[in-house]
Design a binder for these strands. Sequence first.
RNA 1: GCCCGGGUAGCUCAGUGGAUAGAGCAGAAGUUUCCUAAACUUUUGGUCGGAGGUUCGAUUCCUCUCUCGGGUACCA
Length: 597
Amino acid sequence: MNFTCIKDLSSFLPQQFPGAQLPAGWTVTGEKCPDNMSGDITVNCFRFAKFFRQSPDSLAQVVCDFFNRHADVEQAEQIKAFVNVTFRPGAVHRDTVAAIDSILKAEILAADKRRRILIEYSAPNTNKPQHLGHVRNNTLGMSLASLLQRVGHDVIPINLVNDRGIHICKSMIAYQRFGNGDTPESTGIKGDHLVGKFYVRFNIALKEQIDELKKSRPELADKDNEDLFLLTEIGAATQKMLQDWEAGVPEVRDLWKMMNSWVFDGFAKTYERMGIKFDHTYLESETYLLGKDNILDGLERGVFAKRDDGAVIVDLGKLGQKVVLRSDGTSVYITQDIGTTIRKYNDYHPDMQIWVVGDEQIHHFKMLFEILRKMGFAWADNLYHMAYGMVNLPTGKMKSREGTVVDADDLFEEMVEISRAATLERCGEDVPADLDERAEIIGMGALKFMLLKFNPKTTMMFDPQASVKFEGDTGPYVQYACARINSIAAKAAEKGFACDGEPDWELLTAPEEKALSIVASFYPQALADAAEKMDCSVLVGYLLDLAKAFNRFYRECPVLSAEDAALRLARMQMCFRIRDIIADGLKTLTIGVPQAM
RNA sequence: GCCCGGGUAGCUCAGUGGAUAGAGCAGAAGUUUCCUAAACUUUUGGUCGGAGGUUCGAUUCCUCUCUCGGGUACCA
């Protein structure tokens, strides 16, 4: 928001009330005027009346009088503590679309607010392909990284792949027994999906053995299946394989390398399709031993204590007591998290570390951060868990074992296929040469947009039926605004209309034109709010508002058939600048814009 | 049990100590000889889970309560 008269008000008020106690850097902020009120923006005097030791209503009177004397203001109206301001259209355009750099190139964060931020997201396991839950994580992670970068931070996105452990051995055991030497090449199945098939196969075999076990030993009938894992032949074999892996037995390591390479090839395709690039990928097989030394060091320094049974523990007060090293001296999960966090700090020296991880691990991260604080790391105060909610289906939760997960690659394909069909339906005989590319941008954009529309922390419902409709509050709705503008530009070129040059903005007097510029003025604020809250849904909501304002403008204000050349040029320039904002916003969300739709 | 989140229109979700609580979808009625109808316009629909309290003012803050999720491992 860069309105001259708001700036003027911000300097006028302190002069008017010299005793004011203002927060550092204070300025008046105009708010969106409610639809049921007449006005372009609203100044809410409740927000700052106390700084000037005035009653909200009487301050509003002063503000209203100020506006009514200002050359940019057509009319200002006071209602209780609110002042609704109606601008002269020319003044609105002058301070917004005419000064587009002040919107697009605005310095969102002052230099001293910029940080070096390490952000870890995705963190998949290599025993199965990624599903919708991972897609939400990936989308939130890449978009947050992009948003933080956009507002001025130095962002380093990294991945940490869970490439070892008992779950990987499950797929490996099943492959040994049921694999028939299949490979991605021999079967034509994407590597991560092939390995995932054996993970499923393992669980079937395990279930069979547990059922037999319970039949032959009735005293075990009441036990949880998970407690019987090591009593089964296949479970014991899996455990043995994990030990062999740790001991470096060549055959096990070779099988592990081969199957993991299949999975990595598969993940690479999934990431490529989403447009994900990491600065670095940590592998758990290379970091899982980290942390032990740090714990032993902490034990010597008295940060941790040894319990009677030999386990190393830490008392975290309200968070409870936490074992950080088992009584047999081996690591628990948090041990390697401690080690890895220290490693990441030493590798990058970030001002802040962010983890994009589901909200079921909130407690885990609270403990991790508290332990690192207790260990004396000054940077431990700058660790942030971006916890997001689970994705549910209309039929309930997604469960790998029950086969109710929505597969990531299938979902991509479905979204893109629908986009392709819809595009073909619209283009008639004239099939575009870039059909595939368009379908990809629209389909993937629709998916990402839908996932980003929700506040990250909300447990969201994914409705497959609704997700394949591209009407209303969707990514394609926003992309469509750009496509319409592209179309106008193309037609203008065909007709030989001049598109360049600074127009006379005073000509844009329609309410829809002014409303569009007003919405445009809020873009820097939307970016700042989204980054501050680490919530891309703020930006999504803003882009929907902007696209909506554009569509109203489009309906009421013809560009190519405007009354005269001067008005046509002004409207054309208006379109281009709005397109620049939308494209910048979508790009910040890692969503592309198709040339046409 | 204890700890954290949710409960807002038929559905999915925004929202905020302040003006008559919003959007999309779904339902109803319209708009295309006119730059793409993936659009636009109008309209139906709400005791903001319930009860108290603080306040000039509470859906928003506090307490209690009902209800749904998640967590509470020498699992990851």
